[in-house]
């Protein structure tokens, strides 16, 4: 009888893991490596030794978390990290409810959860307006903050209003749960004042739509920067163009960025503490973070934001 009880228990324990896999983000971000496949087998093998660290949330942060997971699992025998993306607000909700041990987010915790959640800032990510590439914006490489606001609130309806060719603007939004939407809206529009339009619920699908839809424009984390899209730099009030390069984000000259947070419910302990210690270690910050497209180590930031 005992073995059957054990296998039944095993099934019960396996079920949430299977569910978590099913809940994974539908599109892998561009930087994703085969680690996520290989690690699921190592997770099964390692399960009896150390309980896995479960993580959910921001899809913008996912490429970095995947890189961290890959390094961590190879250097820490028996450790396993399970990552699923689903949006920043989901990450915060999941960690607050205890569904996962670590919640990833592009945005700070809401006031009612601030007392429960401990914030670990692990990197900085820049965001930018990205657009479909065509003759209509061949000469348009930057937009002012004011013009960006006109585009995303729906005031500007044609690329010729912005100095480009005659082509209607198609605004594509991220879903309201998106941290990218919250960050970009907060900094550029002063809140979620986006014009209603086409909506995509993850960054990967959005990139595909931008490539396909003539005149389309949206906003993405720079980790999704793509040569087949136009990434718009920022035109300052004095006409100087501020590019989306790391140096400009580090100095604060390019303002559309956010901290990437990993939240735990209370102070972390055990396996999740070990993983978070690794992610904030100088080794990870100096060698791994700069190697993943779009991410800037916390240690490089010369400007601080609340």
């Amino acid at each position: 009888m005992r073995p059957t009880i054990h296998s039944a228990l095993g099934l019960f324990l396996l079920a949430p893991a299977l569910f978590a896999m099913g809940a994974c983000d539908k599109t892998p971000p561009p930087q994703e490596n085969p680690a996520s496949v290989s690690s699921s087998t190592s997770a099964q093998a390692a399960a009896p030794k150390i309980a896995p660290v479960t993580i959910s949330g921001s899809s913008a942060l996912q490429p970095l978390v995947n890189a961290a997971k890959e390094k961590y699992e190879t250097t820490h025998a028996g450790a396993s990290i399970e990552v699923s993306a689903g949006g920043s607000k989901k990450g915060i909700a999941d960690v607050a409810s205890g569904a996962v041990q670590v919640g990833d987010s592009d945005i700070a915790a809401p006031d009612d959860l601030k007392s429960q959640l401990v914030d670990h800032k692990v990197a900085v990510v820049g965001f930018a307006a990205m657009a479909n590439k065509g003759d209509f914006n061949a000469k348009l490489t930057s937009l002012s903050m004011k013009d960006l606001a006109r585009v995303f609130t729906g005031d500007a309806k044609n690329w010729k209003d912005l100095g480009g060719g005659n082509q209607p603007i198609v605004v594509i939004n991220r879903a309201p749960a998106s941290g990218t939407r919250a960050v970009f809206g907060g900094i550029v529009l002063g809140g979620d004042k986006f014009v209603e339009g086409q909506t995509e619920d993850n960054s990967g699908a959005l990139v595909a739509k931008l490539k396909q839809t003539k005149g389309a424009i949206s906003y993405l984390a720079l980790s999704f920067k793509d040569d087949a899209l136009v990434t718009l730099a920022l035109k300052g009030a004095d006409g100087a163009v501020v590019d989306t390069v790391d140096a400009n984000i580090e100095s604060g000259a390019y303002p559309i960025w956010s901290y990437e947070h990993m939240f735990t419910k209370g102070e972390p302990s055990g396996a999740s503490k070990a993983f978070l210690d690794y992610v904030s270690s100088p080794e990870f910050q100096k060698t791994v973070v700069p190697s993943v497209k779009g991410f800037i180590p916390m240690t490089e930031m010369k400007t601080i934001r609340d």
């Binding site: 949006g87 607000k89 989901k90 409810s97 879903a175 309201p176 749960a177 619920d201």
Partner: peptide, 9 residues
């Protein structure tokens, strides 16, 4: 429903 359920606790 698909778009909003992730955000609806």
């Amino acid at each position: 429903i698909v778009m909003d359920m992730q955000n609806a606790m």
